[in-house]
């Protein structure tokens, strides 16, 4: 099943009431997979992944003392935006302003599992120095 369909299936019970879009990107905001119920959310989906990358990293690496950052949920008047760290990817779930936050977190957990499957399929970056062939 295509990734977009898997993401849509995860959101299906709440489309039109709570969930408006989900997107999996890398830390620079490059889209890996995207499902959205409306085209009005493009500005959010472009801007927020990179914002999360900066502040999640700050919350994790700083002296906050609360360990690694797992997710940030920002609740605005018209939208709630949940962002989950699935290093090296970021899951973003956009819900309506009136959406049930618990539903957003539950949907986020489902999309997180899809993102984890992608991460496992990614080749591990080899940082070892290659031996000189000569």
């Amino acid at each position: 099943m295509p990734l977009e369909k898997l993401m849509e299936a995860a959101c299906k019970p709440y489309i039109g009431t709570d969930i408006e879009a989900t997107i999996i990107t890398d830390k620079d905001g490059i889209v890996v997979s995207k499902w959205t119920s409306t085209s009005n959310l493009d500005a959010i989906l472009e801007r927020f992944p990179s914002t999360f990358a900066v502040y999640s990293n700050q919350a994790s690496a700083s002296k906050l003392g609360l360990g690694r950052n797992r997710h940030i949920l920002s609740a605005y008047e018209a939208h709630q935006i949940l962002q989950i760290d699935v290093a090296p990817l970021i899951v973003t779930v956009v819900g309506t302003g009136e959406a049930n936050t618990g539903i957003l977190l539950e949907t986020g957990a489902k999309i997180e599992k899809i993102a984890q499957a992608i991460v496992q399929a990614l080749p591990q970056q080899d940082t070892r120095t290659q031996p000189n062939p000569t």
């Binding site: 690694r68 797992r70 997710h71 940030i72 949920l73 605005y76 008047e77 939208h79």
Partner: peptide, 24 residues
């Protein structure tokens, strides 16, 4: 001016930062 796009100025209500050892 579209109500649907009202994500901006003065509209941020709450932020929840969930970390391994606590929540802010």
């Amino acid at each position: 001016y579209n109500k649907h796009d009202l994500v901006g100025k003065g509209q941020l209500n709450t932020i929840i930062v969930d970390c391994e050892n606590g929540t802010l």
